[in-house]
């Protein structure tokens, strides 16, 4: 057991690399079953009548893109399938290109055949500094914060936002959040005081903070890659055109996650065995 106590950590790094890379390269897939918190979000979007107004706030930066981009894509795809009209924004300065990417790749790319038009079917509000104050202000007046969309067109000239005065004119709020400002601020300044339906997607680190708001202030949570994978499975069951590997990024990432988790458990056990063996008999540690 002496080798365990002097194990070079580069072997651990190599094991982690293999645990993540091999399932990805071999395209291993593991089945996922949607849980109630994910299904609550799915059903809400599904039950909204066609053409409902949905606000999606991309409250994250590229550092969390690996974890949150698949759920953002799944939610945007669902809104496109249901022909909901989307108001897109971000509270993070480096989140703006992520909104633009979702528009160019999904709305104007994958759903080009639908002919969705900027201003009529979706609006990109872009980014405003001010963090939670932005939410607090648009709760009463959208134009006080965003007089124009990101391209500089006045909101009154856009069919989608012409009739929107504030957040209360929207049918559903969604925050895809990696921290502050994010899901907590949307709960505190929008869903809770205005009694608006709010769904969130969160990183694994942030998700535990969202649970206390269930069910009255939050209707559901997509927690990390697993939450996104469950959402993709639910989407694939309802819309078979989305049950293909190219549209199931998160499902693809669950096999590397499985092996990484198993490796961490094995390392914890090995570390404890090594500590136990090296413990002096009768000694106190």
């Amino acid at each position: 057991m002496a080798w365990l106590q002097t194990l070079d950590r580069r072997w651990i790094f190599l094991a982690m690399l293999l645990a993540v890379a091999l399932p990805q390269l071999l395209q291993v897939r593991v089945p996922e079953k949607p849980t109630p918190l994910v299904l609550n979000v799915f059903r809400k979007i599904e039950e909204l009548p066609e053409g409902s107004r949905v606000l999606i706030s991309f409250d994250y930066s590229p550092s969390s893109e690996g974890e949150l981009a698949p759920m953002a894509a799944a939610l945007v795809r669902h809104c496109c399938e249901k022909r909901h009209r989307m108001v897109l924004m971000t509270l993070w300065p480096d989140g703006k290109p992520l909104v633009e990417r979702a528009i160019s790749r999904i709305i104007e790319g994958e759903y080009a055949a639908l002919g969705l038009q900027a201003g009529r079917d979706y609006v990109n509000l872009g980014y405003r500094p001010g963090k939670e104050v932005v939410i607090k202000t648009i709760a009463t007046s959208l134009r006080a914060e965003f007089p124009t969309d990101d391209a500089g067109t006045p909101l009154d000239d856009l069919p989608l936002t012409a009739e929107v005065t504030n957040l209360q004119d929207l049918d559903l709020l969604i925050s895809i959040s990696a921290g502050f400002p994010g899901l907590k601020e949307w709960v505190q300044y929008a869903s809770s005081p205005l009694k608006l339906p709010l769904a969130v997607g969160a990183t694994a680190v942030q998700a535990p903070q969202a649970y206390p708001y269930i069910p009255r202030q939050l209707l559901g949570i997509l927690a990390a890659v697993k939450g996104a994978a469950e959402y993709e499975v639910a989407l694939g069951e309802r819309y078979p055109n989305l049950a293909i590997p190219e549209r199931q990024d998160a499902v693809r990432r669950m096999a590397p996650q499985l092996w990484a988790h198993l490796l961490i458990i094995a390392l914890i056990v090995l570390g404890n065995v090594a500590a136990l063996v090296s413990r002096p008999r009768g000694g106190v540690r």
């Binding site: 950590r9 961490i264 570390g271």
Partner: peptide
């Protein structure tokens, strides 16, 4: 920034073994 964030996986694994 994505690479720096991804490095966490390696340090978490190492910390799990040692701490």
């Amino acid at each position: 920034i994505s690479t720096i964030f991804a490095l966490l996986a390696f340090y978490v694994a190492s910390a799990a073994f040692r701490a």
